[in-house]
């Protein structure tokens, strides 16, 4: 079974925000909600690095652990999805998530945040694959169409890789060999844990 993962190559990411925009486009994500964002550290100074981040579809996902209504789940592919019908919009997943992935359409009085929204790895939600209901609530289900997330597919520099963990680890390792150095891969450890990484690297 494939284990879906993201990897952002910080030595390549140029903060062009194509990934962010592609996600908006593909999933009709409204203004104010960003399933993906690009963060630049040391902005404008030597050592500047940009990193694109969304839900990392963690192995031991903190969001799943804290959701009071247990609406977040992990698919066989390792994709972390949730059921908006059940979500009560408490925001706990946002508190727990290391990557700030969960998003809410509002942050209004009386804790009314609306239904949580986050990156689905372009894999829709619990509704039947490719149904209109699924699209309305969760955006596209590219995985069901045999495609990978659009954010990564459109990345200008191919910094953002998405797909089976073993494969993207291979791609990245090849780059590191070419470069002769580099520790720019990002987010892997925290999201997926050391064991998975070693597995991925062994394969």
């Amino acid at each position: 079974m494939a284990r879906m993962k993201f990897l952002c190559d910080a030595d390549r990411c140029i903060e062009c925000n194509a990934c962010v925009t592609a996600c908006k486009n593909e999933n009709d994500v409204p203004w104010g909600i960003n399933r993906r964002r690009v963060v630049t550290i040391n902005d404008g100074e030597p050592g500047e690095r940009s990193i694109s981040v969304a839900c990392m579809h963690c192995s031991d996902a903190p969001c799943i652990a804290v959701c009071p209504v247990d609406t977040i789940y992990q698919t066989e592919d390792g994709v972390v999805l949730h059921d908006k019908d059940i979500c009560i919009g408490c925001g706990y997943c946002f508190f727990a998530c290391p990557f700030g992935a969960p998003q809410f359409p509002a942050a209004a009085a009386f804790g009314s945040r609306g239904k949580m929204d986050k990156c689905t790895f372009c894999a829709g939600g619990p509704e039947p694959d490719l149904s209109t209901a699924e699209h309305r609530k969760y955006g596209s289900n590219r995985l069901a169409e045999g495609k990978l997330p659009l954010c990564a597919e459109m990345c200008s520099t191919k910094a953002l890789l998405a797909g089976d963990g073993a494969e993207i680890a291979d791609i990245y390792r090849q780059r590191v060999v070419w470069r002769g150095a580099g520790a720019g891969a990002w987010g892997w450890d925290l999201a997926y844990g050391r064991r998975q990484r070693q597995n991925a690297n062994r394969q």
Binding site: A10, E15, N17, V20, G32, N34, R37, V38, V39, T40, I41, N42, D43, R49, I51, V53, P62, F95, A96, C97, P98, F99, G100, Q103, A183, G184, W186, D189, L190
Partner: peptide
């Protein structure tokens, strides 16, 4: 080093306008 800094919650710049969008890793969540 980068990774370590980020684990400590170093904030960057981002075009996404949301509170704390610049924080890459919020270890406190753990």
């Amino acid at each position: 080093r980068l990774w370590r800094e980020l684990r400590q919650g170093a904030a960057g710049q981002t075009q996404v306008q949301a509170p704390e969008a610049g924080v890459l890793i919020a270890s406190a969540g753990e």
